[in-house]
Amino acid sequence: MLHTVNKSPFQTNSLETCLRFARASHSVLLFEDGIYGALKGTRLESLITDSLKSYSIYVLVPDVEARGMRIGDVIDGVKPVDYAGFVDLAAENTVQAWL
């Protein structure tokens, strides 16, 4: 299962709720404002680092770069993908959008 989160974790609880329901073997994709949850040095960093022990987390690079961030700002272990990578993830899994 692929969970997608497009909201900043500082604005809504979508990311936290998503992580509550994500399970081993699932994947989580952070895109749009959701990418703010993938960055180093935030209040959420330890939550993300812990989650990475159980499942894969991806971040959409065009959304990262559009917002003045770089891959180097993303927490180690979070995997970068482009739109083609997003399509691959969606092809591999049923998708649940945490709107």
Binding site: N6, E32, D33, D82, Y83, A84, F86, V87, A90
Partner: peptide, 17 residues
């Protein structure tokens, strides 16, 4: 909202693949 833009980019990428 970015939703329509994201949907467009996703759709285009899927078609191109």
């Amino acid at each position: 909202h970015q939703a329509s833009d994201s949907a467009y980019q996703f759709t285009k990428a899927a078609l191109e693949k």
